[in-house]
Design a protein around this nucleic acid. Structure first.
Length: 510
RNA sequence: GCUCUGUUAGUAUAGUGGCUAGUACGCCUGGGUUUCAUCCAGGAAACAAGGGUUCGAUUCCCUUACAGAGUACCA
């Protein structure tokens, strides 16, 4: 009776997957890996009208980027394919027919189905959302109200029809949700949902239940928006007499301010991405920024997402993927929607960068430096990354913040240079420049020793010496320890920059 | 409108029938680095409201408010 855990992530390819979708996939993945089960990707493309080319590839790439790739799917392979619902079209019809046979569903003929008119007149009467339900169906033309021989005749004539589920009357549907515990609905509140559309495609409800059964899915992990249609799914399993999976409905991700769920608009408005990776709409050419391109590390993004609605109950916040798999449980997922917090997201990224070694960061940032046409040496790059990592939030800041290792100073902090410079000290400083240039051992420690000895001798203080060095060499007052920077830059470069910087300082003060 | 779901500092959350209600991000103050950042120390800041139940409720129950989702031949 204990089946192997199998779960699926089942997006529809109607556009780029946003972070809410990634989180759903993540929770599903973590749960599955913890249970040593199979995690598969199924594309729910039963609505041809909303299909967007490239969306499926986007989904796969996004999942790969964060490292939660499915082990079964259309392009991956597996024993339960095809994994694209449009390619399983032939399967659904027989199951819908089976339901009709068992008396759980019925035909409605679209040519003279008077539902559209009834619906409109009910709306006109002030009913906000009329339902094709177990009361109204008695007054509508369908295989329940039409004589049996006429139904046969119409079917034989090839008339267009849809199949609706026959919602029972006066029943209570109860099911257990892993996150919300028992949830119950009254069937009289539910309507006779369409199972097969007249274009021959199944609706989500039918396709989903049939596929989950055929693919031996044991746990349905999905967004909260599906909670209201879950009673229909439960009833469908019962009508088919199939073993029911367990359900877990995840809370939504909300916008950081105001009300409602997070949307692309919020990202544009508040200046943060809502998609994992860049996306260009093939029709409009409109571009949407992704976390990846914005400079986030996949592990940090994943860690942040995991904590949006879940927590381990301990004080630990930084989790590797393996630790997450170990610690995760659906029971500890919160019930209420979580607001996205970009500040905290940045903090996660910073933590991950800080915890990497210079060598690791060098590998990751090398392409960025090369893109800026900087000639990089691996060892030097590792040193630079190590020095800089504590003042960086995004990966792309590495080349920006350390450009002065590769090209001339673009801008001097003139205000500070002027303030910290006195022309009467020039002679003394010139001596220091000479001393430094004469150094055999151009290590950070030795430079520091020399500068300190010089200050001792001349009576000049830190404030009169260091800022001039720093600004001459890097252009700015901010940055890593200056003696280390000088050492890395090398004697020749430093000497040239010092000369130029001092010249500039004199100029500013005359 | 109806159905379902939810509500602890600005945000993410922990937690309990009786505690100074804990942690993290952010914010403020200070230390430190004679730069910046990291870091360290300290601070402000919350149980949505009203009724019950109870010796006692943030915690259990009800009502209200607010919020979210659903209410399609979309998923």
């Amino acid at each position: 009776m204990t089946r192997k855990v199998r779960t699926r992530f089942a997006p529809s390819p109607t556009g780029p997957l946003h972070m809410g979708g990634v989180r759903t996939a993540l929770y599903c993945y973590l749960f599955t890996k913890k249970m040593k089960g199979d995690f598969l990707l199924r594309i729910e493309d039963t609505d041809q009208g909303r299909f967007v080319p490239g969306a499926e590839e986007y989904i796969i790439e996004a999942l790969n980027w964060v490292g939660i790739s499915p082990s079964e799917g259309q392009s991956i392979g597996g024993d339960f394919g095809p994994y694209r619902q449009s390619e399983r079209k032939h399967l659904y019809k027989q199951y819908a027919d089976l339901l009709v046979e068992k008396g759980h569903a019925y035909y409605v003929f679209t040519s003279d189905d008077n539902w559209a008119e009834l619906r409109e007149s009910l709306i006109a009467q002030g009913k906000p959302s009329p339902k094709y339900d177990n009361v109204n169906r008695q007054y509508l033309k369908n295989s329940l109200t039409l004589p049996a021989d006429e139904v046969q005749k119409r079917l034989a004539a090839g008339e267009e029809y849809a199949i609706r589920y026959k919602m029972p009357r006066n029943e209570e549907v109860k099911f257990k949700d892993i996150i919300r515990d028992v949830v119950s609905f009254q069937t009289n509140q539910l309507d006779d949902k369409v199972l097969m559309k007249s274009d021959g495609m199944p609706t989500y409800h039918l396709a989903n239940v049939v596929d989950d059964h055929l693919m031996e899915i044991t746990h349905v992990v999905r967004g909260e928006e599906w909670l209201p249609s879950t009673p229909l799914h439960v009833l469908l399993y019962k009508s088919f007499e199939w073993e029911m999976p367990e359900f877990a409905h995840l809370p939504l991700i909300l916008k950081p301010d105001g009300k409602g769920k997070l949307s692309k608009r919020d990202g544009d408005r508040l200046g943060f991405p809502v998609f994992p990776i860049d996306w260009t709409n093939p029709e409009t050419g409109e571009e949407s920024k992704g976390f990846r391109e914005r400079g986030f590390m996949p592990e940090a993004f994943l860690n942040m997402l995991a904590f949006l609605g879940w927590n381990p109950g301990t004080e630990q916040e930084i989790f590797s993927k393996e630790e997450l798999i170990d610690t995760f449980s659906l029971e500890r997922v919160g019930k209420s929607g979580a607001r996205f917090d970009f500040e905290k997201t940045k903090w996660f990224n910073q933590q991950y960068i800080k915890n990497k070694t210079g060598e690791e960061l060098a590998v990751l940032t090398k392409p960025m430096f090369e893109k800026a046409a900087y000639k990089v040496d691996d060892k030097m790059l590792a040193t630079i990354c190590d020095m800089t990592k504590e003042r960086v939030t995004f990966m792309k800041e590495f080349p920006e913040m350390s450009y002065y290792f590769f090209e001339d100073i673009k801008a001097y902090d003139e205000k500070m240079l002027k303030k910290k410079w006195k022309n009467e000290n020039k002679e003394k400083i010139d001596v220091l420049v000479e001393q430094l240039y004469a150094l055999e051992d151009y290590s950070g420690e030795n430079i520091e020793k020399t500068v300190k000895a010089f200050m001792e001798e001349t009576g000049l203080g830190f404030g009169q010496v260091l800022p001039v060095l720093r600004i001459s060499v890097t252009g700015t007052m901010q940055g890593p320890p200056i003696f280390e920077v000088m050492s890395l830059l090398g004697k020749e470069t430093v000497n040239k920059r010092l000369a130029k910087g001092i010249e500039k300082a004199v100029e500013l003060n005359s």
